[in-house]
Design a protein around this nucleic acid. Structure first.
Lengths: 292, 292
DNA sequence: CTACCTTACGAAGGACGTAATTATT
DNA sequence: AATAATTACGTCCTTCGTAAGGTAG
């Protein structure tokens, strides 16, 4: 199985068209047709139905492998290439909104700028899933992500990158001031039927919360798709629903919060990176971030 | 990055020789040299030092990616190929020694033989790490493995196969009859300095135990490299050291055993398989095994 | 001097593009 | 009929093997 055939295969499958894939990859239709034919004859299995173009069962199976393989090929290239390249003049850091708000990112960047004044720095927001892939592909040099975790720490990655835990802080449920629950500690499952705010970009997604509570419920009463934490806190303050945030961002006087007695959850910030060549700007920044 | 180049690269790195790799792969030396040159020029990085042949830092990095990539390419091929192949006339099952002793494997095989009388069945012993790789490569159709697990169940696989938990049974520490500890429940860490038997092929490796106890210690007083459980129990009965086994194999009257109070550990048996095409013998056997 | 890797060069095979063909809607 | 994939075929490029050339131990 050669890699180029897989690339073409996933393109065809994704676009559901030989011609579209050809256009995207810079081939002619015929070439794409031949490549798919070669792949199918190599595996002695039909992978795609034609008209309309649709993966067969075997094709679906192959797709499940092909995507990670191609991602890892990319990862290998960027990983090896980074070893040689002259310490880049630019560093691109991906940050999930909450990770940016809570970690010492800004301070770390200041220190990095001190040590390497000529370095161009770009900070980009990203979500957790995209971030890991982008780092693997070399589109990002580093990423700071956040998420909920239970005490036993899996650190799971199906993507060929390394995640280093930077901090694990308690999370609290945000309430309007003077809310009856204020001050107590509650079990998470007790709140499964409360009004919740779905703010997947800023707060832990409700889906995550459901997973940790091992319950249904946590249905969204309001959905906030923005990325601003102050807005989210305002919404919570006005009683539009509950949300879950690390205590470090809850200095705002308009809200109060309660701890969670069960299950024991934390908000973890992770640094996502490839094995970093020493002396690269990314490694320097990673070192600075890790020291907090 | 093309796959064939990676195959040659890992062969050269493993054998530390261009000529040996050429022999193994059925190329001439020159071809191998050209392939490595092509790879190095593609990545614009030297990957190997010559005389002696040794991976450079970048080469080492690439190797870390190349091995899993090639494994997964194999996995993709066998996975897709299995969809088409006529339900094989032979099925090969890998079993770790303890998994074979505790699971209903023999019964399941009998039932399989009932349903498919013409099927040739081979059972092969394997260790956990090899088993997953062999299944991915298609050298095994299924594998039954066993290991220690804590209650939160990670089911971790860095290899592109699926692991299905079949059973989780309590483990006990095996003691000679009339041993002073008999009957009590002990904390695992309290026994860190006891005499232990290292029987990595049959019992959970001491390294695993150390990991769960989060302690050093558990140094081997005796090492048994065989694969027979009765022998291991005999050794424990004679007081050569402690070992840890699932309670289901401890019917032997010459030993007694104690439960472990902390941490909560179980002995888990897992079925390792690729996504199985329905109606294959492997799928049938998997279904039989899962129903216990 | 002798392994062993690299480079040069020619031949064979593979892959792509153009263009004609077939199939599906 | 029109749209879209396949097949046919010629050309070019890649990759291999043979053989000569370096180079380190």
């Amino acid at each position: 199985v050669e890699a180029q055939l897989l690339r073409t295969f996933v393109a065809v499958a994704r676009l559901a068209s030989f011609s579209a894939a050809a256009a995207e990859l810079g081939y002619t239709q015929a070439a794409v047709s031949q490549q798919i034919a070669a792949l199918e004859s190599d595996l002695k299995t039909q992978l795609l139905n034609r008209r309309p173009v649709t993966p067969t069962e075997a094709g679906t199976r192959l797709l499940e492998h092909a995507e990670p393989i191609l991602l890892r090929l990319d990862a290998a290239r960027t990983d090896v290439t980074r070893m040689t390249k002259t310490p880049a003049a630019k560093i691109v850091v991906g940050v999930t909104p909450l990770a940016g708000a809570t970690s010492g990112l800004a301070a770390a960047l200041a220190e990095l700028r001190n040590r390497m004044p000529r370095l161009a720095i770009a900070v980009r927001t990203a979500n957790r899933a995209e971030a890991a892939i982008a780092v693997a592909r070399g589109e990002l040099d580093l990423a700071l992500t956040d998420g909920l975790t239970a005490p036993g720490d899996p650190l799971p990655e199906s993507v060929p990158v390394t995640a280093t835990g930077l901090s694990e802080k308690p999370v609290r449920i945000v309430l309007p001031r003077h809310h009856p629950l204020a001050g107590r500690a509650v079990g998470l499952t007790d709140l499964a039927d409360a009004r919740w705010i779905a703010a997947d970009n800023v707060a832990p997604p409700l889906k995550e919360i459901r997973r940790h509570a091992a319950t249904d419920g946590f249905k969204p009463a309001l959905r906030y798709t923005g990325e601003d934490i102050t807005t989210l806190i305002n919404l919570a303050a006005e009683g539009h629903g509950l949300t879950l945030l690390p205590e470090s961002v809850l200095s705002d006087g308009r809200v109060t919060s309660v701890a969670i007695a069960q299950p024991r959850l934390s908000h973890r910030i992770e640094l996502i990176h490839t094995s970093l060549p020493k002396r690269s700007p990314a490694a320097t920044l990673a070192a600075i971030l890790s020291e907090r």
